[in-house]
Simulated assay, not measured.
Amino acid sequence: GSSGSSGNRLLSKYDPQKEAELRTWIEGLTGLSIGPDFQKGLKDGTILCTLMNKLQPGSVPKINRSMQNWHQLENLSNFIKAMVSYGMNPVDLFEANDLFESGNMTQVQVSLLALAGKAKTKGLQSGVDIGVKYSEKQERSGPSSG
């Protein structure tokens, strides 16, 4: 376990209803079954990487199928990178450990809902109406640090 509690509490709490919507959306797009435990089903990253390749073909060129922890974490970090290149705001992203360590499933949920909204904004047709259209934030003018 990690010592010290983070004082930065999210306003939203975990919503099982939204989890059900996400499950339907992800399974519908990937054709893969997440299983009864949402966190366990997603934590190896293969389903998420497959999802990303459906939304943006080729965005995750290599998906590790191994059960090694570091391979699974690599999948997750590739998925997160792919979300960035898909146009997501960094504030909407979760970290690999949020899902892998099951430390912050609320943030994972927020990210996936934002991703669903982003996909909708880009005109993705899916069987589930999920997520709100992604709000384009005002770009700051000036040099972007990359």
Rank of each mutant, 00 (worst) to 15 (best):
Q68Y: 01
Q107G: 12
A116Q: 08
S111W: 01
N75A: 11
F79N: 02
L115F: 04
N89I: 03
D98N: 13
R140P: 09
A119K: 06
Q138V: 14
K137N: 08
Q125E: 05
L93G: 02
S111Y: 07
D92F: 05
L73E: 15
S85G: 06
N78M: 09
A114Q: 08
Y86I: 03
G127A: 14
L93K: 06
E101L: 09
Y134K: 05
L76H: 05
E95H: 06
N64A: 13
Q109S: 11
V110I: 12
E139Y: 06
A114F: 05
E101G: 06
D129E: 08
Q72L: 13
M88W: 10
E74T: 09
Q109N: 09
N104G: 00
M67T: 11
S77Y: 09
K133H: 12
E95Q: 07
N75W: 03
N89P: 01
I63C: 11
G103I: 14
V84Q: 14
G117W: 04
H71T: 05
T106K: 03
R65Y: 04
M105V: 14
R65K: 11
K133F: 11
G117C: 05
S111D: 12
M88S: 07
G127D: 13
M105F: 10
N78T: 06
I80M: 12
L112I: 00
E95G: 08
A82T: 02
P61G: 10
S102C: 07
Y134M: 03
D98W: 10
F100E: 07
F100H: 06
E95W: 09
N89G: 00
A114R: 10
V108E: 12
N104D: 11
R140V: 13
G87M: 11
V110M: 08
Y86T: 02
G127K: 15
L76M: 09
F100C: 06
L112R: 07
N69Y: 09
L73A: 05
N75Q: 04
